[in-house]
Design a protein around this nucleic acid. Structure first.
Lengths: 218, 218
DNA sequence: TAGATTGTTAATCGATTAACAATC
DNA sequence: TAGATTGTTAATCGATTAACAATC
């Protein structure tokens, strides 16, 4: 265990490990080696061992990692052993989708409040939650000890919403709007913009390795 | 212009550049330097110049980059000057959200068919599209020259859907299901799993730099 | 014990950044 | 011309991988 500063690359991989481990658990596999975990993920086994070793000695030489134990450790590292309260701003289709995801996932992120600025939506229900007006945001954040805000409003409104979240004392933002948000350093902003994923996917369509063509761009 | 092989890191940044450039264009800014683009994105200017220079000499010394011209070039690189046909599998809330996004975005990705395996959904409409049964997938891919498939089904069904897409001759998959998909090398799979983003966000909540605590994990 | 696999150090690889000649 | 900014080379930094002693 070192607890130097952990690189973003490592942190990004932890949820991936967790995902596979959960699948292994569901299949009642008790133990896994970095070798095998690596082959499932197409990751280098040494990388996996190194990533995990940043946080502790979770494995056993000659044996590997115990699935249940490792799940628990990673959940602990990611803070999802404790429940984290989340607010969602933007009660559109995407907002609905996220609320549903929420129901089924077994991590302890919980959307506890939904907001929208569009008058007719206020007071409507999403599952058990009632859509609230934006002017209740700051108060609700305090009341429910909300630490993360998810932004699912159109791009033009996103910065404004972000500002309100920040003013309300939020610690992290997951932004689905296709725009760059400005935020103070102490507020972590994560961009979950699938249009970017889709566009970079497009790049690879005609660029399958050797068939690259000097003149293609120009 | 070199056209060696371009690293994933570079390709990931192109859509980000495009996004900012589009915003600049909307504000009728004609020209931008790597310096200023960098300050908006908190990217290093040299990195931006280098990224762009992989694809051509798009800038002008002493001046910077012409916004319109650069947009056009990046769109070209990403292949979104041409329309790319997309199929969406899974007509839930997330599927609906993506179909709507589609309407508003100005890139030429177009969802031209929607599929679902759940009987009652088949024949219902999402905007102008009619939800089709899975057994029409392969045929429709060919008919409409569909190159990308978006998977928005539950995790347990995702691999099965992916297999059908692959069998149908798809070139790229954008997977929203929180599971690892197996696919042959020539099919590019991009994971757009926001649960992972959310989880890594959680990590940073209590780990704000110096307040890190040796004993916290153990 | 012999075989397997970890945790970790050292070597490699690749990506980012600094610096600067070229030039608009 | 003088000032600005590119494209690109060289230097730096960081992340990945190989290798192996420790040990279950």
């Amino acid at each position: 265990m070192k607890q130097a500063k952990i690189s973003d690359a490592v942190v990004k991989r932890l949820p991936i490990y967790l995902q596979v481990l959960n699948e292994l658990k569901a299949r009642e596999i008790k133990t896994i080696s970095s070798q095998e975990l690596g082959s499932r993920l197409e990751f280098n086994p040494a990388q996996i061992r190194k990533d995990l070793a940043y946080f502790g000695d979770f494995g056993r030489k000659g044996i590997g990692y115990e699935v249940d134990y490792l799940i628990d450790k990673i959940r602990h590292i990611l803070k999802i052993n404790q429940t984290i309260h989340v607010a969602l701003i933007g009660a559109g289709n995407l907002g609905h989708a996220l609320c549903n995801y929420n129901k089924y996932s077994n991590d302890n992120m919980q959307i506890v409040a939904v907001f929208d600025s569009y008058e007719p939506k206020i007071g409507t229900k999403i599952n058990t939650l009632t859509v609230q007006p934006m002017n209740e945001l700051a108060e609700t954040i305090k009341q429910h000890n909300i630490r993360i805000g998810i932004i699912t409003v159109p791009a033009q409104e996103a910065q404004n919403v972000a500002n309100q979240l920040i003013a309300g004392g939020i610690e992290g933002i997951l932004n689905f709007a296709p725009t760059i948000l400005r935020a103070p350093e102490e507020v972590r902003v994560q961009h979950a913009d699938f249009t970017k994923e889709l566009l970079s996917l497009a790049y690879y369509l005609n660029n399958k390795e050797e068939e690259q063509d000097e003149s293609s761009v120009d």
